[in-house]
Write a protein that binds this DNA or RNA. Structure first.
Length: 222
DNA sequence: AACCAGGAGACAT
DNA sequence: ATGTCTCATGGT
């Protein structure tokens, strides 16, 4: 099983996922921060609150008091942390001249710039790069790590950069890497929700649910 | 009724 | 460099 083959299987099994659920690049970036260790349904509520209060812009967010902002973000959890992270990010975004200015940077430079912002780690930065700035970057998340680990492609304890390099290297020559990476990450998340979290995986979880890999033996095999 | 979700930073070792 | 703790609401 190679990363390319895995993609083919996932796509055939689940079809296109229509990510990222965001109207504008800015909304995508907000969602990227709010979804940190949080289910997307809860993020949608928080974003709805922002929209309801006409606060879905960097200018408004930087001018909104922490307490007020945190109140709107409440449904997405970690509301105090996320309120300061969001304000911090918006302040930086405006200082940089907005998305249009940032978009002139190379992918590597833009990535370094995003990572310099407190509250934006590797996955959040890559979510933004891929889904807001349309750069061909492979996003690694907990599902990706778990799935690749279950398939025996990785040990699971590699760091973020190692896994990103691993996937990007194996999809280097694919055509239209932007839409491939876009769809691939979405598929991994969708499939990941159905994969048993336990290690080793229980015998039945793969049979109980529709398993695109094939046999349960192959699934559980290290 | 525990368990965990599309993580990241601070801090200790 | 590598662990551990914290942040917090809403689903199953």
């Amino acid at each position: 099983m190679t990363p390319k083959q895995l993609y083919q299987i996932l796509y055939k099994t689940y079809g296109p996922q229509h990510w990222w659920p965001g109207e504008t690049p800015f909304e995508v970036m907000v969602g990227a921060v709010l979804t940190q260790n949080t289910a997307w349904v809860n993020v949608e509520r928080a974003i709805a609150n922002l929209r309801e209060h006409q606060a879905l812009s960097a200018e408004v967010i930087v001018r909104t008091h922490q307490r007020r902002l945190a109140m709107w973000l409440k449904p997405s959890g970690y509301f105090n942390v996320k309120a300061s992270r969001l304000k911090n990010f918006c302040r930086w975004l405006l200082a940089e001249g907005g998305e249009a200015t940032l978009d002139k940077l190379s992918t590597a430079d833009l990535r370094v710039a995003l990572l310099s912002v407190n509250g934006i780690g590797p996955e959040t930065a890559d979510d933004m790069l891929l889904y807001a700035f349309a750069r061909p970057v492979f996003v690694i998340d907990a599902y990706t790590r778990r799935i690749l680990s279950r398939l025996g492609l990785i040990s699971g304890k590699e760091d973020y950069e190692t896994l990103r390099a691993y996937m990007e290297a194996r999809l280097q020559r694919s055509d239209n890497r932007l839409s491939l990476f876009n769809e691939y990450h979405a598929l991994l998340v969708h499939h990941g929700k159905q994969v048993c979290r336990r290690q080793p995986a229980c015998e039945t979880c793969c049979l109980r649910r529709r398993c695109p890999y094939g046999s349960a033996a192959e699934f559980g095999a290290e």
